[in-house]
Structures are given as structure tokens and as C-alpha cells.
Amino acid sequence: MAEIYDLHCHSTASDGALSPTELIKRAHEQGVTSLALTDHDTTAGLAEARAAAAASGIKLISGIELSTSWHDKCFHIVGLGINPDYGPLAQATQNLQTVRLERAEKIAQKLEKKRIPGAFEAVKRAAGDSMITRTHFADFLLSQHHVSTQQEAFDRYLARGKPAYVSTPWAELEQAINWITESGGIAVLAHPLRYKLTANWMKRLLTAFKEAGGQGIEVVTSRISADEIKLVAGYAARFELAGSAGSDFHNPENQWVELGRLAPLPPHIKPVWELLEVQG
């Protein structure tokens, strides 16, 4: 049986729609053989996912997606094969919970000024003990009929430069990579084309990422074209980074993004899962 890797997805521990158990079940149904649960800034879903994976025969890779700052921009770094009990990383996730809660309060205040009340209470209720993300706010705006889609919520209210956007002091890029690597994991730059960097800025970012200990880059993601895969594969080759593949799955209602439904990694790119095997 062919191995099918999906090394980027989310559960209800952050902003996914499925519980860790439901996520594993869906991955199994989609033929995924190795799955990394990479919730935003938390490892809270890993224990449940591990139990479900053991029952279904899927290999679970402990992961996280850390929000980081570099040159006043936010970048996401996926950690694969991490030890969630590593002290500094565990403490960092607790600190990030506080940062996200404070950001949520500020976003709600900005929405209140736009005559959209009740956001903070609603997103806290929706998130429960999980991380509060902007997706929770997008869902709230959608439920209150202020927008017709999640994307419209970001485009009109939540994205950088929009009325409810809040600049957030995330961990510095180098520090986040250190948490990942010192916990035994591999740092991977998530969805590199989403940041809309010029070629020069992308080279600067990848130089800093590599110097800090980064080892991989997501070459294959959902809804990526062949030309875009070729472009990112070129960066991977130039900076000697392993290639990763991840759907960034959040919600089964999104018909365009599915667990394991990914283009093949270009054959000349070293797969990041080979590094995970060496790592043991």
C-alpha cells in the first residue's frame, strides 16, 4: 500500500471543526497513513489523537503550528516530531494562550465600535478550552449574517489593514524554531506563498529561517498549482530544505481542501518524512 502523508491539519484544539478523534477517523477514511496534527500554538489535542491513531493504524506525528514574527510580519512555522512535554515549548504554548485571549478581547472591542456586539463572549463559548483564533471570529460574523462567507469576514474585518485587525506580538522566528528543534522536532515553513512576498523578501526569509535551524518547507499544499509547486520546489532546492506536504485541513465543509488529497512531492526534493525517520 502506498504511503500517504498529510503533515498539516487542525482539530477543535485550535480552529478545526473536527475533534482529534474525528480528524483521525476522517484521515483513515481518506487513506492517509501518516498524519501530523499541527494545531495553532497548542499541543492540547495530541493525546486524544494519539489514542485514536493507535486504534486506526495511522502513524501520528506530534506537531504544532507556531505563530511567529519576523520584520513585523506574521509567519507560521510547523513543528514536526516535537516532544509536547519539552518544558520551554509547553510554557510557550501557555503564554500564547494568553496572547490569543488578549488579542480576542481587542478584536471584539474593535467590532463593538463597528456596532457588532457580543463577539468576545461568543468566540470564548465556541472555543471552550481551545485556542481562540480569528477563524472563531469569522464564524461569529458569519453566524450573525454580517458576512456571507468566512473569507469575506477576513476581507472585510479581520485581515491586516481591516477594521478589526489587531497586530500581535508573536514569538520571534528564531525563538520559535529553537523551541521546535530543542524539543527534538523539525521546523517547517508553512504555506510559503500565502505571505505574498517578493522573490527578494522570500530569499531573505529563507536565509533567516535556515540560519535559525529550519529544515523544511511546505512544497505541496491544498489548492496549489503545478507552477506554484515548481516555484516552491526551487526554493527548497536552493536553500537545501526538505519538502513537506500538508493539506492545512480545517473543516469538512470546505470541498476544496481534504485530508491526504495532495499532489505528489517533486522527485528531486528530499521528503521531510525521511528526516523524521532518521530522527526516530
Rank of each mutant, 00 (worst) to 15 (best):
P20H: 01
E22F: 00
E22L: 01
I24M: 07
I24Q: 03
R26K: 15
A27S: 05
E29P: 08
E29D: 15
Q30N: 12
G31K: 07
G31H: 06
G31V: 06
T33P: 06
S34E: 13
S34N: 13
S34P: 04
L35R: 05
L35D: 07
L35I: 14
A36W: 11
A36Y: 07
A36K: 07
L37H: 04
T38Y: 07
T38L: 09
T38Q: 07
D39W: 03
D41Q: 08
D41M: 08
T43W: 07
T43G: 06
G45Y: 10
L46C: 09
R50I: 03
R50E: 15
R50V: 03
A51V: 13
A51N: 14
A52G: 14
A53L: 09
A54Y: 05
G57K: 04
I58V: 13
K59T: 15
I61V: 15
I61F: 14
S62P: 14
G63M: 11
I64H: 12
I64P: 11
E65R: 09
E65L: 12
E65C: 10
L66D: 07
L66F: 08
L66K: 10
S67E: 09
T68P: 03
T68I: 01
S69A: 12
W70Q: 11
H71G: 06
D72L: 07
C74H: 11
C74R: 13
C74K: 13
F75H: 05
F75E: 03
F75D: 03
H76C: 04
I77W: 07
I77V: 15
I77Q: 09
G79C: 08
G79H: 14
L80W: 08
G81C: 12
G81N: 09
I82H: 04
N83S: 12
P84C: 04
D85R: 09
D85W: 04
Y86D: 02
G87T: 15
P88C: 11
P88L: 11
L89D: 03
L89H: 05
A90T: 12
A92T: 13
A92R: 09
T93Q: 14
N95S: 14
N95I: 04
Q97D: 13
T98D: 12
V99L: 12
L101T: 07
E102G: 01
E102N: 08
R103W: 01
K106T: 06
K106I: 05
I107W: 00
Q109E: 10
Q109Y: 05
K110M: 02
K110G: 00
L111A: 00
E112G: 00
K113N: 01
K113E: 04
K113L: 03
K114V: 00
R115E: 08
R115P: 00
R115I: 02
I116G: 02
I116F: 02
I116W: 00
